[in-house]
Computed example of a mutant assay.
Amino acid sequence: MPSSPPLYVILLRAIGPATHRLMSMAQWREAAERAGFVAPETLVNTGNMIAGFEGTAAAARKAMEPVLRHFGLGENVAAIVRTPAQLRRLVKADPIADAAQNRPAETGVYFFAAAKPDFGLIKEHDGPEAIHIVADHLMVDFSQDVAQSGKLIRKIDRLCGLNTARNWNTTRKLAERATAREKA
């Protein structure tokens, strides 16, 4: 019996209404499959994919680049790849348990392209948001409407490098769905 390729969670940066006009999630799945991704499925309409890929996470990220460029998406739309195990560890760590339970839309998990992002900004952060580092990811309890935290969001973008963020519900659902696929 042939073994399944490794499973990855692919998170796109800079996906929104403008990019949806260029690439629907159905088109993305079809193009990913043509590029060698196995049984790609998307979760919600914000650039989240779970798919098998024969190779490393770095190879999966590299293979996704031409898929995105084929649709005319700019360099700002980038894939950040994680394993289901990495997502499970983030969910299990849950350093923002109260916020995740009571204000999941006001929580964020930042995923970075760099293997070791620079989190020096944490020492200088003086806003109302609570920030936690878990396995080279930032978990943020915005404690308010996320739109009120523009200063922190810009600082993360400027100082920590290429990233994308997902709220707690999406992160949890991706971990659950990827785990279910691994067990199937």
Rank of each mutant, 00 (worst) to 15 (best):
2 P>H: 08
3 S>V: 06
3 S>I: 05
3 S>W: 08
4 S>Q: 06
4 S>V: 00
4 S>T: 01
5 P>V: 02
7 L>V: 08
7 L>K: 07
7 L>P: 00
12 L>R: 11
13 R>A: 09
13 R>M: 07
15 I>W: 13
17 P>T: 04
21 R>V: 04
23 M>K: 05
23 M>I: 09
24 S>L: 11
25 M>Y: 02
30 E>V: 10
31 A>Q: 12
34 R>Q: 09
34 R>S: 06
36 G>A: 02
36 G>W: 01
36 G>F: 00
37 F>Q: 00
39 A>Q: 05
40 P>M: 05
42 T>L: 02
43 L>K: 04
44 V>G: 00
46 T>I: 01
46 T>V: 03
47 G>M: 06
49 M>H: 02
49 M>Y: 06
50 I>E: 02
54 E>N: 09
55 G>D: 09
56 T>L: 13
56 T>I: 06
57 A>V: 00
59 A>H: 13
59 A>I: 02
60 A>Y: 08
62 K>I: 10
65 E>G: 05
67 V>D: 11
68 L>A: 03
69 R>A: 05
70 H>E: 10
71 F>R: 13
75 E>Y: 08
75 E>T: 10
77 V>Q: 07
77 V>Y: 04
81 V>M: 12
81 V>E: 08
81 V>K: 15
86 Q>W: 03
87 L>S: 02
87 L>W: 07
88 R>L: 12
88 R>I: 11
91 V>N: 14
92 K>T: 14
96 I>K: 01
97 A>L: 08
101 Q>D: 12
103 R>S: 12
104 P>M: 15
109 V>D: 02
110 Y>N: 10
110 Y>M: 13
110 Y>A: 11
111 F>D: 10
112 F>I: 14
114 A>W: 14
115 A>V: 09
117 P>T: 00
119 F>H: 15
120 G>N: 14
123 K>V: 15
127 G>Y: 14
127 G>I: 15
128 P>C: 14
128 P>N: 14
131 I>Y: 12
131 I>R: 05
133 I>W: 12
135 A>N: 11
136 D>V: 07
140 V>L: 02
141 D>G: 04
145 D>L: 06
146 V>C: 00
147 A>H: 03
149 S>Q: 03
149 S>H: 13
150 G>S: 07
153 I>W: 01
154 R>G: 04
155 K>R: 11
158 R>A: 14
160 C>I: 01
168 W>S: 04
170 T>Q: 12
171 T>D: 11
173 K>S: 11
174 L>R: 01
174 L>S: 01
174 L>I: 07
176 E>Y: 03
179 T>Q: 15
179 T>A: 15
182 E>A: 07
183 K>G: 13
